[in-house]
Design a protein around this nucleic acid. Structure first.
Lengths: 194, 194
DNA sequence: ACGGTCCTGTCAGTGAGTGACATGTTGGAC
DNA sequence: GTCCAACATGTCACTCACTGACAGGACCGT
């Protein structure tokens, strides 16, 4: 898939480091675990750890912003004449379905939820992702900046509300169904086209 | 209004420190200005500065989360039979009107916008405020947790989209009118009551 | 005038993150 | 298989945000 061997090794190592870090953080708490402890446990220097992750938070949040690009790509592939809200709903619905399958996600989301620093960084990443999505939406539909911004922000709110409800249930409810409910409730009126 | 002399002095000093910090940050950039530089400029030790503000970011964001409690209070005062979206709209509309008057707000918002660390912290504060508002909404209307959460998140998205558009215009447009447009576009359908 | 409280500065320390340099390791062209 | 340039890693020294402990001084209320 992606080019050289070195690059593949690198991302494999990165994934292992992230997994180890997540375990330690989940067990002892994010703030209570120092980067040095993670480094020792992984058998590398802290300096090396910081060559894989720009910040301590990113050891947990790597996967979160992969979403951004994926969503933007899939949005680009939606039929050109579909209304924006339906497009956003469709893309986030399939995304919710897909990630509900990944088991470790619950641990990660719970850790993020109870750690202010992680919540802050996570929100920041999502905001950046949202801007990229808004840009795609604008290209695809010719909406003005305000409306594209508003719709993506509302879609983000719907997704996050669904996610929080899912967390409240301990991961037992149907994530995608919650996304559907949220999107149905917020569907913009025709005023949005103005 | 608030009790002792000491307390009043303290908050006056705090306000002055915040103002000075904002000036320095606006001129030289947030990340490029060290806490020690702010302290020197103010003629205090860094230790004292940190006794007034828990973090460097809070020197800028103090005012932001005063909003949370204000909004919660005003929401509590809305007529009991009003529909939730209208209540949220009304409260945030008046709030937008009020703050548009405060001049320094533009500088502050621009600084926040171009500084990732401030955006992150700001989002975190708003999220905490939103949770308090959602709780009030739930008490007042008997909505389930999911719906209250969704509505406040959507209201937050509307407010923020309006704010960003206002910033894009350099503060020249009517902030409250933008809030109106955003709230009108997102007004939930009756499905939200389910 | 005075006693206790509050404010402040100083000092020492932790922990995240960065730049520079030197030493290995190795993928891949030949 | 050889060899080199690119890459990964470790070490060292540093900056900066932030914190706890302690001590001296200012000042409100009596």
């Amino acid at each position: 898939m992606s080019g050289g061997l070195r690059e593949r090794t690198r991302s494999a190592v990165r994934a292992q480091l992230a997994e180890l870090a997540l375990e330690l953080f989940a067990e002892h708490g994010f703030d209570e675990t120092t980067v040095e402890q993670v480094a020792r446990a992984a058998g590398v220097s802290t300096r090396s750890l910081f060559r894989y992750f720009p910040t301590k938070e990113d050891m947990v949040l790597d996967s979160v912003d992969a979403m951004g690009d994926a969503v933007a790509e899939e949005l680009r592939a939606r039929p050109a004449d579909e209304d924006p809200w339906t497009s956003l709903h469709a893309v986030l619905h399939t995304w919710a379905t897909r990630i509900a399958a990944a088991g470790e996600r619950l641990t990660r989301l719970q850790l993020i939820e109870r750690t202010p620093a992680l919540r802050a960084r996570s929100a920041q990443r999502r905001e950046e992702a949202r801007l990229r999505v808004a840009e795609v939406l604008r290209e695809r539909t010719g909406l003005d900046a305000f409306t594209a911004d508003l719709l993506t922000a509302a879609a983000g709110a719907a997704l996050e509300a669904a996610e929080r409800e899912w967390l409240r249930s301990g991961g037992t409810t149907d994530h995608a169904a919650l996304v559907d409910r949220a999107f149905a409730a917020l569907r913009p009126t025709s005023a949005a086209a103005g």
